[in-house]
């Protein structure tokens, strides 16, 4: 194709594919933890108590305005430097993460801020009527959240959840900056070894695009499976 030699890249196909899988893995775990953070923050932000809502709002507004790469550098370079000098050895060891866990933690913190906003919109969209219906049945606040708000909201937030997953997946490309061998790292390494710029970046681009649109297609399928609507 295009008069280019594609043999070398074909022989290294497993490396590229594992890079892709690693990115998906980190994005998925990051999304899961981010959802927990996002849910807690969303409920805190919609709380009547200012001591809960104010820090929640601050977290969302602050983190959404930071570059993900800065968060990754902070976790990977900054925290260990500071922890080693300021904290006892065993506590410091807990805070020092390897590359992959740094990316997962970074995605969770970063994605958590976006997910909090998505969940907050979801909570607000459920509306008072359902909450009051739950209260009239004698459910507690936690029970209302668990059995009424969350299931109803799940349907409305699903598309945004999917978009966040795709964004986080694309953001895993930044992991190359701390030498995590995901797809972008593999591609750049391949390029420096072989000088096959065009082949390598074409393959990487196609893999990213196909994966992103495949995730989107799966999510649209899932959305259609949920038949009830609010």
């Amino acid at each position: 194709m295009f008069g280019l030699n594609w043999d070398l890249i074909w022989r290294n196909r497993e490396e590229f594919l594992w890079g892709l899988v690693l990115g998906l893995q980190m994005a998925l775990i990051g999304l899961a933890i981010g959802c927990v953070i996002g849910l807690l923050v969303a409920f805190a932000r919609t709380s009547r108590h200012r001591w809960l809502s104010a820090p929640a709002a601050a977290y969302v507004e602050f983190v959404r305005n930071l570059p993900l790469l800065l968060i990754l550098f902070f976790l990977y370079f900054g925290v260990p430097m500071w922890a080693n000098s300021a904290l006892p050895r065993d506590v410091a060891d807990l805070l020092i993460l390897d590359g992959e866990n740094t990316v997962i933690a970074g995605l969770a913190i970063y994605g958590g801020a976006y997910l909090a906003e998505i969940f907050r919109a979801g909570i607000l969209s459920v509306g008072r009527a359902f909450v009051e219906a739950g209260r009239s049945l004698g459910l507690s606040g936690v029970q209302i959240a668990r059995y009424v708000t969350l299931p109803i909201m799940f349907r409305t937030v699903l598309p945004s959840l999917g978009n966040t997953f795709i964004s986080l997946f694309k953001d895993t490309s930044l992991a190359m900056a701390i030498a995590v061998p995901e797809l972008t790292f593999v591609t750049r390494k391949f390029v420096t070894d072989t000088f096959q710029f065009i082949q390598a970046w074409t393959v990487a681009a196609v893999l990213y695009i196909v994966t992103a649109y495949a995730i989107a297609a799966v999510l649209r399928f899932l959305e259609r499976r949920i038949r009830w609507a609010v």
Binding site: K170, T172, S173, M176, T184, A204, Y208, I209, A212
Partner: peptide, 8 residues
């Protein structure tokens, strides 16, 4: 472009 990571 919207399917590609910015870094790529």
């Amino acid at each position: 472009v919207r399917g590609l990571p910015l870094l790529v």
